[in-house]
Write a protein that binds this DNA or RNA. Structure first.
Lengths: 205, 205
DNA sequence: GCATCAGTTGCGCGGCGCGCAATATCGGAT
DNA sequence: ATCCGATATTGCGCGCCGCGCAACTGATGC
């Protein structure tokens, strides 16, 4: 992304992190959703060209490594929303931001399918989506001008959006689905974003 | 609950499961959010009056055991919604069902706080909430008379509701919060349930 | 009562998370 | 160009954990 925003050291670090994450996901895909136990830490480390010990300087578990890409992606959703023009309504901005983020490169279907259809990965997968909620809630709060702790609207909306993205992903991966990911996302988000606007529910604390 | 609905075998099984889960949570609370690693499987098993080997006939990890109660609770949310009178609107029914389920016995604050404020437990905690989504989505689909695969509305709404419950819980646990859990839940849910009604977004696939 | 089945337990193996200390490598200032 | 401090990488080793296996025990149905 913006490599030049950090010094060389940090960039290299991030590079190995990505290498490990990528190797982990790749090996996981090879073994399929059943047989995750066969993906040994040793193999991941070798595939990434590092020692096993280094591998878990970066990740504390296979699962974490495999899902690291998704987690990193989620971390950008707050920024994506903030980068939308202020003229847009919250609804427009959220939908546009999410679609932009999740379709710029169309997600790797095999990878996404792997992490969303493997029970052992479920926990980390959910975590990956949930990391988006904090920053997203803040971005929503800023945009709507709501004081940080004055209501649950930003947090609840952020959670709902994250949930909608998850559901959209799951739907997109279903066998006979032909719609583009973008259109599915739009459809899913349309159910949650135009929620009760802040004004109407101003009554609460 | 309805102990008499199953034979002795099943009842004992469920009893040990609960015993282990309870012991695990209790020990975790004693150690606090930092020091989860000190809660050894051996201790949990002993506290539950069972061998370590038996412990993981039931659970594959500490985390799973500790969060088992929350997970079980989540599994009931679908039933709770189905038990609401059909005259109620979806909005009314969902709110009533959730509040009923989560306030009949007020949740154990210490336990909930433990599982929601411990990073290592995050994955399992999220899983615990997410298990509610499937059954809840089906219940919503049934109630609204939407064909199973005809739209994302039920699944998205279910995810949003689950998210709202999570956010409400987190808020309830915040230090200076005086509101009842019920009122917080109502407030949180009010942001997501009156979403775009199915009719308005009938356009999608 | 007896045959059967399900839940429990002891044993043991392989893998993993991680603390520690030594080493290699890199980046920046001189 | 060179040196030095910071930081990343690695090897080693310990203790715990997940789980397959096989023996045991008590509940269940005929």
């Amino acid at each position: 992304m913006n490599d030049d925003a950090m010094d060389l050291r940090a960039r290299n670090k991030q590079a190995t992190r990505q290498a490990i994450g990528h190797a982990a996901l790749q090996l996981a895909i090879e073994q399929g959703p059943n047989g995750l136990a066969l993906v040994r830490v040793h193999d991941i480390a070798m595939a990434a060209g590092v020692s096993p010990r280094t591998y878990n300087n970066y990740f504390a578990s296979r699962e974490e490594a495999i899902c690291s890409f998704q987690a990193d992606q989620s971390r950008r959703v707050g920024l994506a929303l903030r980068s939308r023009p202020v003229e847009e309504s919250l609804e427009q901005a959220v939908i546009a931001a999410v679609i932009e983020l999740y379709t710029d490169p169309e997600p790797d279907k095999a990878g996404l399918s792997m992490i969303m259809s493997t029970p052992e990965l479920e926990g980390e997968a959910l975590k990956a989506f949930s990391v988006a909620e904090g920053p997203l809630a803040e971005a929503i709060a800023d945009r709507t001008g709501i004081a940080p702790g004055s209501g649950l609207f930003p947090a609840v909306t952020a959670a709902a959006v994250a949930g909608a993205i998850r559901v959209a992903g799951r739907h997109w991966l279903k066998p006979g689905t032909t719609d583009s990911f973008a259109s599915i996302l739009r459809s899913a988000l349309s159910h949650v974003v135009p929620v009760t606007s802040p004004e109407r529910s101003q009554e609460q604390r």
